[in-house]
Amino acid sequence: MTRTDSIDDDCERLLARVAGGDRMALGQLFATEAGRLIAIARRIVRRREVAEEIVQDAFVAVWRRAASFDPARGAGRAWLTTIVRNRALNAVRDGSRLDFADEEQLALFSERSGDAHAALDALSDGDALRRCLSALEPRRRESILLAYVVGCTHGEIAARLDAPVGTVKAWIRRGVIALQECLS
């Protein structure tokens, strides 16, 4: 059993206890996962306080919704991550980034693009995802990383890669199909 598998097992056991109203189990989940989840949210929302707020809200949501977690679908950790990711994406999609002035917007863009590349580089050499992403046509790969890692919209990717939105959508479509073919 790999390390990640055993963490997943722990997560699922804890979530089952949370579903039964065990607050201590939620506390343990918080102790093991909060730092990781704040980091994921911050890569998307860029502000630490907002990322912390999102993770706090997410744990309250987990308390309310743990009963809807379906262990048959596997990874409890992935379920937690999805809740945090969706909240972070909602926060940026509602336009809070428009607060930044143009110059800041540009700096932010290069920072986000750097984060997206760093994430790919940080994958271990043997990781199938790394192999499959690396095999993609570069602009497709870049579009997928910008969307997933830092939460860029189609429009933001189009601006970043200097391409029409329709083209970006086509890159992502072909990219994710090829990626799933490669991973399955």
């Binding site: 990781r36 704040i38 980091a39 911050r42 630490r48 990874a75 992935a78 994958l123 994710v176």
Partner: peptide, 16 residues
Amino acid sequence: LLSNRMAALDDTAGRD
């Protein structure tokens, strides 16, 4: 399939 594989990218964020 896709979300479980993409989760490897989440882990690269480290811990805050």
